[in-house]
Write a protein that binds this DNA or RNA. Structure first.
Lengths: 189, 189
DNA sequence: ACGGTGATGAGACTTGGTCCCATCACCGTA
DNA sequence: TACGGTGATGGGACCAAGTCTCATCACCGT
């Protein structure tokens, strides 16, 4: 038996997402989130550094991407390494059972500038990690930047497609396909 | 004679930049910024919606980019239109007399996560504007996204090079050259 | 001289976020 | 059984960002 109700963080995330959906991010106070989770403001800030982060906490994403790029076959080019990373993400993070949660979360984020701002920053960090991982494979700096940007773009588009509930394809498969389209488009610039 | 000291906004920007450099963004209070500018907290928030925005206020950048892309020669491809926009920016915004201010501003932003976050959001908005402007030229959506991302990357790199005070080249020229390098790199992915 | 106008000042108020200290249930040890 | 350590929580003081409302005050046209 635990001393307190378990999964405090998860309860906070759930409470927050519900409240954001019900009355919007700005009309929800941290105290209200904590109360719905059966906790207090103090405990909230012990689990998350700020109010926005409650929707960005699960982020082991960076590690997965870096690992995915590093683990790509030795002969693979930059974009192939990125595709490999997107595969890893699809298998480890974007599983079908998390799709609904992801879509709800994304809707809340899109509806609020403050949350979009945090998302943008996370995106920069992710892209920077991809660049580093590619450089570690021996890819020249500029090429690494370009590959990372194209990969991030494909990721974003693939995620939108994958979130569509009428589409049951695996994320990795969608991402590979999208990345190929992006690469083809880049040749037409 | 004016009733009050003129250029209140500009004075606030200057005071803020100085204080951020002296003691850091987080250790500077809005009240302190206002006082150095000879104003009050109330007036600060009348000129800027929040503390971060004091470093992002001059942003007619979006309009310039959109205008630059729209004004590109009819036969120009997506990346050529973007290059044209970068030329416009170089002539209208990134003039030599603003280079030092830009560099100081950039250093402050880079040093603070909260400011980087705002910068990231502005970047997203700018990229989205480029995509729209390219679509209005008849560029297919996906191609427009790719061209905008590559353009944004070239922009960022070119800005870093241009900020280097040992380099007196025009921004537009640097940007064109950088964009060509980015395009070449994208072919190696 | 007088009322309108627009930028500013003053201060109350809410909320995000920090910090410190108390509490309280469990656990290992004597 | 008693006891002290531990780790997550609660409580509340405190500061700064941001909102809002009302007062002020110098200019301007009539």
């Amino acid at each position: 038996m635990a001393r307190w109700q378990p999964n405090a963080s998860q309860r906070l995330v759930t409470a927050a997402l519900e409240l954001f959906e019900e009355r919007g991010y700005e009309n929800t106070t941290v105290i209200e989130i904590a109360e719905r989770a059966g906790l207090t403001k103090s405990t909230f800030f012990r689990h998350f550094p700020d109010k926005r982060e409650v929707l960005f906490g699960g982020g082991t994403m960076t590690g997965l991407v870096v690992q995915g790029i590093a683990a790509a076959p030795a002969g693979a080019g930059p974009l192939e390494a990125v595709a490999h990373a997107l595969d890893v993400i699809g298998k480890e993070a974007f599983t079908l059972d998390r799709r609904e949660f992801g879509a709800r979360r994304q809707a809340v984020i899109t509806a609020n500038p403050e949350l979009r701002e945090r998302e943008a920053l996370k995106g920069l960090g992710l892209t920077a990690s991809m660049v580093d991982a590619l450089k570690r494979r021996g890819v020249p700096a500029l090429t690494a930047h370009v590959a990372a940007e194209l990969g991030a773009l494909a990721w974003k588009i693939a995620y939108e497609r994958w979130s569509d509930t009428t589409n049951d394809e695996e994320f990795g498969e969608l991402a590979r396909q999208t990345l190929a389209e992006v690469q083809a488009a880049s040749a037409l610039c």
